[in-house]
Amino acid sequence: MNSKKNILAAPYAVWSAVFIVIPLCMILYYGLTDKTGAFTLENIAAIASVGHARALWRSILLSVISTIICFLLAYPLAMILAEKKGRAGGFIILLFILPMWMNFLLRTLAWQTLLEKTGVINGILSFFGLPSLRIINTSYAIVLGMVYNFLPFMVLPLYNALSKIDENVINAAKDLGANKIQTFFHVILPLSVPGIISGITMVFVPALTTFVISTLLGGSKVLLIGNVIEQEFTQASNWHLGSGLSIVLMIFIIINMIVTALFEKAEN
């Protein structure tokens, strides 16, 4: 029986080896060699060059800010949704997934129309006599694009974690004398940590590595590390340098994973 089941594992084991593990090894190989195939750390050290370092720093800054904004927006929302039991809550969650069916490039591009000098938002602002927003093609627009695209990834895990909390556990805290604020910080927040962690990961990683949002909303003025890597592959055709920078990016993703894993452990 067991040996039969092990045979069943073969297709996926082979598939994941060929299409997941080997490709990652190839990035490592390209990242650690030069064009002649000799070992080098130059491609990784290249991150220290002014342009690359600045792009990386900008990526980290914008993705951290976006993650924080997503968290602050999503947490109250997830709490409100978690209060709605059953169908109603589930339906609202569907409304978060629904926009994904409209191509994300188009959705992001639509923000151009909304944010432009003579765009919809400025039209509304000037109608009320407010000063116009000049954020298109700036870092602010990129943050907005990140928050817009990745907010559902924060809401869904938070909603899952919060709606799993037994109502009686919250009642128990009140019963034992805790007021709303104490109940929140002593009980609700700690119990939602798994959701917070997966939400942060699911927002931070794509925000850190995006090149699309910066291309669409940042004009060509704001380069992120994702843009640099993308250009190395599609325009400069320097796969070794692109791979080296990708390794640096992966290191940051792994650091993020380790930090959140440690945080989770500490909470337990």
Partner: peptide, 14 residues
């Protein structure tokens, strides 16, 4: 968990 860009690049190299 990995970034899409890294997955994309790695498959391209493969």
């Amino acid at each position: 968990l990995n970034a899409d860009i890294v997955t994309g690049i790695s498959l391209m190299l493969l």
